[in-house]
Design a binder for these strands. Structure first.
Lengths: 138, 138
DNA sequence: CCAAATTATCATATGAAGATGATGATATCC
DNA sequence: GGATATCATCATCTTCATATGATAATTTGG
């Protein structure tokens, strides 16, 4: 469902959300904690920073942190830079034009499901996913 | 959402469903009608035949046809041979174990959406997709 | 200003999906 | 039984996501 890179991005953002109070977290620590290749993660996080999801700082106390509070970052924002054309191709049969006016054979039935998926990514925030874990420490 | 190959498979099966009454359809005709590389489609259809979705015959009047009536072929069956591990990885964050007992941060919310998608492929039949087109010729 | 630690970036490797071209195997028709 | 048309299969090629390794740029602390 998600590309490997998008999954890395999501896991990293959730980790950073859990440590929002701390100083910036180094890529090395993220890579080790989350078991992700360090240099690859470095590039991925750079993309997230350019997308405005993360903020990066260099030098001795440098690292990455969320650019905004976790309740203002949607999963769609985190995943978007690593989907490319996937988000665009909404037609299950790959037709260039597929709309209510000019539907493919699967359009009506697929649209309902497809919109559910989009709504999940678009409306769920990072904070909401952390919530279920935060509740645990009562 | 679907791999290119799975999309080819689905489009071909729908085409064959529209021509169920005819003699077997040649790969060449399928490839041209659906604008799919012929040799590649050939391999893909061979896989569908081994999976029991299509029946193939060789020689002068050979070609491919549905192995069963269209209302007894689910979309999941058509797509399954070309997903490999995709179907297995139900955890959004890629965890090996992710269940109600041992959930990842996204489990509860994602499960609902994920099951919708599975239900769509598992319960929708080829005949149902053809139906909306068949209705048109009243 | 220098050294150390960190992100940023470049160059390249690897593996799998997608695609192409050629050849082998089999069924039909005359 | 031979010619022909078709599926089946083999051998590559290309492209892209993923990954690795090395180097440049920047910030902090002494």
């Amino acid at each position: 469902m998600l590309s490997q890179t998008a999954e890395y991005a999501l896991r990293t953002v959730l980790f950073l959300g859990e440590h929002q109070d701390r100083a910036p977290v180094r890529v090395g620590e993220l890579a080790e904690s989350l078991d992700i290749p360090q240099n690859y993660l470095s590039k991925t996080l750079h993309q997230l920073a350019r997308a405005g999801v993360l903020a990066s700082s260099r030098g001795k106390l440098g690292g990455f942190r969320l650019a905004r509070p976790a309740d203002r970052i949607s999963l769609a924002e985190v995943v978007a830079p690593f989907h490319g054309p996937t988000a665009t191709r909404s037609c299950l049969l790959g037709r260039a034009v597929c709309s209510d006016q000019s539907p493919c054979a699967a359009h009506a039935r697929w649209k309902e499901v497809s919109e559910r998926v989009s709504a999940f990514f678009g409306e769920t925030t990072v904070a909401e996913l952390l919530g279920s874990r935060t509740v645990r420490r009562k």
